[in-house]
């Protein structure tokens, strides 16, 4: 086609330009710096209500009972024989909670929650884990500033790490 650049000629030319709408529909990830967080807000109190409606059946009334993944507690357990890995004890970034709850929860209806619902659930879960006060409003500005207890608990892969001799 006229006007095509030389650089474009060197490519195969397959595929279509992605439109803003294409990208917006799928661009759901949230980075640790908060990139991707949508407008909206949530409180611990609102989160308690949504959680009890949409989450408690699988994760237990307080987030500790299950039957599915335990979400609360386990602090100080990571170096013991029975580590309990939860949002509070293990997760390094609070933003990941928004990302994961929206993309994958509730398990039976992923990507069905509104931004306000997700912010509220994040607030409630962080509060249950003793990370934020009951009064905190969670939104795109405040969430990236929450420091998780195990933020510095991760190290890079040092392998090969095991001496193997005959």
């Amino acid at each position: 086609p006229p006007g095509i650049s030389m650089a474009e000629e060197a490519r195969y030319g397959f595929g279509q330009p992605a439109t803003e709408a294409d990208i917006k529909a799928w661009n759901i990830d949230i980075t640790p710096t908060g990139e991707g967080l949508p407008p909206g807000r949530g409180t611990v109190r609102q989160g308690a209500a949504v959680y009890s409606n949409k989450c408690a059946a699988c994760h237990g009334p307080t987030g500790t009972e299950g039957p599915k993944d335990r979400l609360v507690g386990g602090h100080g357990s990571l170096a013991t024989e029975h580590p309990v890995k939860t949002i509070g004890s293990y997760w390094p970034y609070a933003t990941t909670l928004y990302d994961y709850i929206f993309r994958a929860m509730p398990f039976t209806a992923p990507q069905s929650l509104t931004a306000d619902e997700v912010y509220s659930l994040v607030a409630w879960l962080l509060h249950q884990n003793g990370i934020i006060p009951a009064t905190m409003v969670v939104d795109a500005q405040t969430l990236p500033n929450v420091t998780m207890p195990n933020r510095d608990g991760f190290v890079a892969d040092p392998r090969p790490d095991v001496e193997s001799r005959e």
Binding site: E8, E9, R11, G13, F14, P17
Partner: peptide, 8 residues
């Protein structure tokens, strides 16, 4: 946009 084309 393809300046090169398609295959089967």
């Amino acid at each position: 946009v393809s300046s090169i084309g398609t295959t089967a």
